[in-house]
């Protein structure tokens, strides 16, 4: 082998080791483990497809999937519409002002999720929280966001919408790349604001929109930190919330590290992996038709 080629492998070697040790290896190991029962103490015992059969019958899995899917279905569209609104505002402010407001919109994204969860436990407090006091100003009697099983999930969605910083920045960056001449030409042709937005802006930023749909979906399906900080780990809060805050990864975490059902947790993990892979694939298929790429954009 030429010395140059040898050196090339030296440079990519850390990645290959990491790939084997922390990505591919664990993925295959978790597939294997998903067909066993393993509690860390005695060695794994082959269990066939028992873990998957158990998943199908476990009412908590159904609840966790329901909560996670409902959250994703609410969070993703709301987050993207709102972030697009913010990005359009930034784009209209323009110049230095845009930088200032961008900082303001991004600040919540610099708040550690545990702190976000804790903050919203206070803000959403049913008796005395700021949100309900604000609603009270309009004569609205706000719900018990953190204890009423019907209102816990909407409360979590509300909290998630405080964190739009990254999505906004990505969309704003895309908006800034839309050539001004296009809009000007359309204006001369008599196109109104809505027509220009619908026919020029939206198609031009559709790759970015598509990208934020994918990353927000993947992140939502893996929701953990904020919810865990708010509703789990403490007996009182956990009992008060029942299963209304039980998200899929929370349940996976509990199975693995509280009950030491490593095999069952691995089965849960693999199903999640397949679902995420499938959703991403479908989004690529559908997105491929909806997204407008400029020549050479697709690299």
């Amino acid at each position: 082998m030429r010395s140059e080629t040898r050196w090339a492998y030296v440079f990519v070697l850390p990645w290959l080791i990491g790939l084997a040790l922390f990505q591919l290896g664990p993925m295959l190991a978790s597939l294997g483990l998903s067909f066993t029962e393993y509690d860390l103490i005695s060695s794994p015992e082959f269990a066939g497809t028992a873990n998957y059969a158990r998943m199908a019958q476990d009412p908590k899995v159904a609840v966790a999937i329901g909560n996670t899917v409902l959250y994703t279905a609410l969070h993703v569209p709301l987050a993207i519409v709102l972030a697009l609104g913010l990005a359009l505002m930034l784009n209209r402010v323009g110049g230095r002002g845009a930088g200032v407001f961008r900082t303001i919109f991004y600040l919540p994204s610099m708040t550690p999720y545990v702190a976000v969860g804790v903050l919203f436990l206070f803000l959403l407090n049913g008796q005395a929280g700021m949100v309900n006091q604000f609603l009270g100003l309009f004569g609205i009697d706000g719900p018990q966001w953190t204890t009423d099983p019907d209102w816990i999930l909407p409360g979590i969605v509300l909290m998630s919408l405080w964190n739009l910083g990254s999505t906004t920045i990505i969309l704003f960056a895309a908006l800034r790349n839309v050539p001004a001449e296009l809009a000007e030409a359309a204006m001369i042709d008599g196109a109104g604001t809505w027509a220009r937005f619908r026919r020029i802006t939206l198609p031009m930023i559709s790759p970015a929109l598509f990208f934020v749909v994918i990353i927000n979906t993947i992140a939502s399906l893996q929701m953990f930190d904020q919810v865990y900080a708010m509703f789990f780990g403490n007996q009182a809060t956990q009992q008060a919330s029942g299963d209304s805050a039980l998200f899929y990864v929370v349940y996976l975490f509990q199975q693995a590290f509280q009950f030491l059902h490593m095999g069952y947790a691995s089965a849960l993990a693999w199903v999640l992996f397949l679902v995420i892979a499938l959703i991403t694939l479908v989004q690529w298929k559908v997105g491929g038709r909806l997204v407008h790429y400029e020549a050479g954009d697709r690299a």
Partner: peptide, 16 residues
């Protein structure tokens, strides 16, 4: 691997 959900490798990584 950029799209690989971290939850999938949680258990085996712990075992390592």
């Amino acid at each position: 691997t950029m799209m690989l959900p971290a939850a999938v490798t949680l258990v085996p990584t712990y075992l390592i």
